[in-house]
Amino acid sequence: MDASELISTVTTIRPGISQREKCNRPSVVIESVNLLDIMWSLQSREDLGFDMLLSHTAVDWIDEGWFELVYLLYSTKHGHYLMVSTFIPRESPVIATVSPIWKIAEWQEREVYDMFGVLYEDHPDLRRIFLDDDWEGFPLRKDYKDDFMLERPE
């Protein structure tokens, strides 16, 4: 399945899936409420077969006021990639967990929680993974500051 075919197949799963522009890889934007539905069908459908979550990360769009959550999927059967991204508000960063679909998402979501403070509903073990357990704040947020950091002199 080539890139345009893949995009057209994915966008027919349900309404509200749009192709992301300016991407050199097949990439779609979905609504955050439909995340679990779409991910289940991406994983289980025979012609798509995305059985591997390569990477999950977030982008802090501080001026627009939302986090972009990025899921990079790969199919070991068909050998194609798909980047799925969704947007959640910065003030209430809550999203459903995809760990029942891909087990590895447990740790990747813990990392995103550690760095950005995104909360995953029904996550089995949501606690910090890299930083100390008593760490305050989420360091990859653009407005993060602490006493240890040095500002670069102008």
Binding site: L131, P139, F148, M149, L150, E151
Partner: peptide, 10 residues
């Protein structure tokens, strides 16, 4: 990592 780093010991 001297500036703007939240972890690195200088």
């Amino acid at each position: 990592f001297m500036y703007h780093s939240y972890t690195t010991v200088r």
